[in-house]
Amino acid sequence: MIARVYVGLKPGVLDPQGRTIANSLNDLGFNEVVDAKQGKVIELRFAESDAGRDAVEARVKEMCEKLLANTVIESYRIELDEE
């Protein structure tokens, strides 16, 4: 099983890197871009186990709350994939 964790800034938190990316795209002529947000993807691979999807997801949620995201400024989304 693989879990993909998408971490990004919460709405309302100014994203200076996203802003710079949007400006740069505008400079390159992509004028249709009005905003960009930058985040990160963390891919986790798990050892074989009998744990069901719900159990895995609960564990990954705990990882997000404890370390992978700073919930003061970031939100996260979890995707699970069979390998």
Partner: peptide, 9 residues
């Protein structure tokens, strides 16, 4: 709170 990337990068 949190410390984020400087706005001017």
């Amino acid at each position: 709170g949190a410390l984020m990337r400087n706005t001017n990068q």
